[in-house]
């Protein structure tokens, strides 16, 4: 009897449609978020993460509406991220039915925001999302820097230090994306994952780079992730969530079966 490792399909949404890009570019349409969320939930997804990449302000209303619709049909935890900048944004998403919010750029711009958010809403609903990129050269001790704006903007922040700080401010979970791996399908950055997982007490969600089911296993066993997030392998029908779970169970990982 043990806690199951979680499989979290991620829906990147633009104006109410699920999309998926490679290295944050070249976006492909993958369908209706409500239908997709329901399908993943029925197949055994342990949580759903909804990342809004809609740029326009008007699009935000669409997002709230979509979150409401998903939350009315999917009775597993739902995390919403993208454009969460104020306590009011968090309140809006929680009211729409989100269980957690993922804060990324706003945390970098104003770290105190994370503290305020955790104090107001509780650590259990504050996920800090970080986009990390390796900046050390080969042969040097590994070092990863935090980037924002879809990986375009360096911040000068060291990932390990940053994550420790965010947890001390009340982050209840870390969504860790490797910018080097995102969309590449060559697997998670396992060294990054392990380093972050060992640096803090809270659960880590590994993200960025999943191309096959062995990558999920590696993320848990070698990367010491508590949960694994993937998008394109599920969206384009390469694997079902059920197949992912069966494979992980075969490799000795505790998963939730339906």
């Amino acid at each position: 009897m043990a806690l199951a490792k979680r499989i979290i399909p991620c829906l990147d949404c633009d104006n109410g449609r699920v999309v998926k890009g490679v290295k944050f570019l070249d976006i492909r349409d993958a369908g209706d978020p409500v239908e997709i969320a329901k399908r993943y939930c029925d197949a055994g997804a342990d949580e759903i993460t909804f990342l809004d990449i809609t740029a326009s302000h008007e699009g935000r209303d669409t997002t709230v509406h979509t979150v409401e619709k998903i939350a009315g049909q999917v009775f597993i935890p739902l995390t919403v991220g993208g454009g969460i900048r104020t306590l009011e944004d968090i309140r809006t998403m929680l009211n729409a039915g989100a269980d957690k919010v993922a804060i990324n750029t706003a945390a970098v711009d104003n770290p105190e925001f994370v503290r305020e958010a955790a104090e107001r809403f509780g650590s259990q609903c504050i996920v800090v999302a970080v986009d990390a990129k390796q900046v050390s050269a080969e042969g040097e001790p590994p070092k990863w820097e935090i980037f924002t704006h879809g990986g375009r903007k360096p911040t000068g922040l060291d990932t390990i230090e940053w994550v420790k700080r965010m947890v001390s401010y009340g982050a209840g979970e870390i969504l860790l994306t490797s910018m080097d791996r995102d969309g590449t399908k060559i697997g998670f950055d396992l060294a990054l994952n392990k380093a972050v997982s060992n640096a803090v007490q809270v659960p880590i969600i590994a993200s960025g780079g999943v191309g096959n089911l062995q990558h999920l296993v590696d993320g848990v066993i070698e990367g010491e992730a508590d949960a694994v997030l993937a998008a394109s392998i599920f969206h384009f029908g390469e694997y079902t969530v059920q197949e992912a779970k069966d494979y992980m169970a075969e490799k000795g990982i505790e998963v939730r079966s339906l």
């Binding site: 009897m1 043990a2 806690l3 199951a4 490792k5 979680r6 342990d46 650590s123 259990q124 209840g172 979970e173 007490q201 809270v202 659960p203 508590d226 949960a227 939730r256």
Partner: peptide, 22 residues
């Protein structure tokens, strides 16, 4: 702090996720 399972592996806190209920 320092919570461990039967095999000695470190357990994260919060206890977050799906666990079995007897």
């Amino acid at each position: 702090d320092g919570l461990k399972d039967e095999s000695g592996a470190r357990l994260k806190v919060p206890h977050m996720g799906w666990n079995q209920v007897k």
